[in-house]
Design a protein around this nucleic acid. Structure first.
Ligand SMILES: [Mn+2]
Ligand SMILES: [Mn+2]
Ligand SMILES: [Zn+2]
Ligand SMILES: [Zn+2]
Lengths: 138, 138
DNA sequence: TTCTACATTATAATAGTTCTAAACTGTTGA
DNA sequence: TCAACAGTTTAGAACTATTATAATGTAGAA
């Protein structure tokens, strides 16, 4: 609501026009001290709670993809019927709670550097991510 | 074709009736020294190459899910529009080639043990998997 | 203000997956 | 041996996340 100029600058500097839909989505995604994980469906719900103006589903998809492309969001590889996104773009890892179907960050400092002693010729490493699946003890 | 009794025993001992469709799918998935990764679509193609009798798509899905449940297949977490399965059920890791959209095994021995220095109370670790995304150097 | 490229939108299309319900088959035990 | 039943297969419909389409709207430059 208030200090949108930050988002306007951010969008403009990355070649995205600061439309009111994109600014609203920035507010929802980045106007918080805590980062979080979400699906498109989660985001749509957050938007409808936060505003009276509707944002079309197509725009939500377009915007999330544009932000991902610019590095403002990461997509988390979870096998699921829908994509998970992450507002935490720093290098980190995840617990996936199979009971709650919930992603939880693992700080990079809490994982010893992953050493891979093999390479693929002609390919360079883009990312190394650890997924720790957990379930209830019982 | 020949030694199906092994698959018949395997199916029967896990409570699955050894139907001809399941035996055929066993032959395709497990009758090879090398393990491999596949999508449902890949498997459907392999089946139609290997046999004249059609197996319905619903049965392919049913069978793959049944085998996964019994631990004869693993599902690999990749963000993709389709699920990837693995006939290698041992503990190992993966390269994912983003250009070829191809999974490549990383032997467990080629990855230094991943140490996670944090836990979630009330949860136990089910698996720890490393996904290394790679792309063409250029 | 006018122009234009970019963005939004409703809606249709696509595609992987799951569901349905009818037909079929493997197994059991009388 | 064979009926009976539960498990399985099947074609096709339904579902759902995502992407494409194409018409309308708008931000920013000139
Ligand atoms: Mn899945
Ligand atoms: Mn995806
Ligand atoms: Zn995260
Ligand atoms: Zn593998």
């Amino acid at each position: 609501m208030l200090n949108n100029s930050h988002y306007i600058d951010k969008l403009r500097s990355s070649g995205l026009r600061p439309t009111k839909q994109r600014i609203k989505i920035c507010e929802i995604l980045f106007n918080t001290e805590k980062t979080f994980h979400f699906t498109i469906n989660d985001l749509v719900k957050k938007i409808s709670k936060a505003t009276n103006d509707k944002i079309s589903l197509a725009t939500v998809y377009n915007t999330v993809h544009a932000f991902k492309k610019k590095g403002y969001l990461k997509e988390i590889p979870i096998n699921s019927d829908q994509s998970y996104f992450d507002t935490n773009t720093s290098h980190h890892h995840h617990f996936y709670d199979e009971n709650q179907k919930d992603l939880i960050d693992i700080d990079d400092a809490d994982v010893e550097p992953v050493k891979i002693n093999t390479r693929i010729p002609g390919k360079k490493i883009k990312s190394v991510e650890v997924l720790v699946k957990v379930e209830d003890t019982e």
